[in-house]
Design a protein around this nucleic acid. Structure first.
Lengths: 126, 126
DNA sequence: CAGGATCCTGTACGATACTG
DNA sequence: CAGTATCGTACAGGATCCTG
């Protein structure tokens, strides 16, 4: 931290050392997918789709591919008829558990404060 | 955790208990802004703009308003000529520090693994 | 079943002015 | 200085249909 020359302008990714990991872990749909995979274990494409009701197959595929590429999810293809594909969290993906726990904890303590702040702000702006 | 009826389909926000807080804390530009505010303390609009070089004033304003509404940032307007506005992290915003630290730690340990996984994946797909 | 292909739309964001 | 206003666009994501 603080290894930045004073007065230097920064790129979005460089202005903040955690930006890269935020892109990886918190890009759209990744948390619901990882969470579902963590909660229900190894499962097939349709199961994921059913559990994350509002996601379309196209987007689910895109995000699963991205997570597979990043090594957070493992895809297993069974060449049968009909084809069967199973997804599960990788070791690396599982290493995010404490992070998610910290997040859940912060949420439990502070989410209500955020909501109150929003209501106060919206009242004042009327 | 696990307080979900079996077989139930879930909304994106409901499929994952941390989804709401992810929207609040990790929506676009919020981490660079919070990080810069945390690193350099209370500062004016232009300073923020200079430090997060690639952000436009319009978007910076939008995101600052959102963060103010959520109670993570405090905006102080000084009715002078020329006008002076200062932004700083709120108490609530500061409470995110351990979370960011956990994230930085995970990044330090695992970012390289993600990059290696990507290279391996891209090699295989050629 | 697990997706690919195609088409379409919303909106988040950038660029470029302009004001109190 | 600290924004707003306006315009234009690129791309994420939805809807629908199709296939190995």
């Amino acid at each position: 931290m603080g290894n930045v020359k004073s007065g230097e302008a920064l790129d979005p990714g460089l202005a903040c050392p955690i930006a890269p990991v935020v892109d990886i872990v918190f890009s759209r749909w990744t948390t619901p997918i990882l969470w579902t995979l963590h909660e229900y274990g190894r499962q097939r494409f349709v199961e994921l789709q059913r559990r994350i009701a509002s996601i379309t197959p196209k987007v689910l595929t895109q995000r699963l591919r991205q997570l597979e590429r990043d090594g957070l999810v493992v895809r297993t293809y069974h060449p049968e008829v009909p084809p069967r594909v199973e997804y599960e969290i990788s070791e690396l993906g599982r290493s995010l558990a404490p992070l998610f726990a910290t997040l859940a904890e912060w949420s439990a303590v502070n989410l209500e404060k955020v909501e109150r702040s929003r209501r106060a702000y919206d009242d004042g702006e009327t």
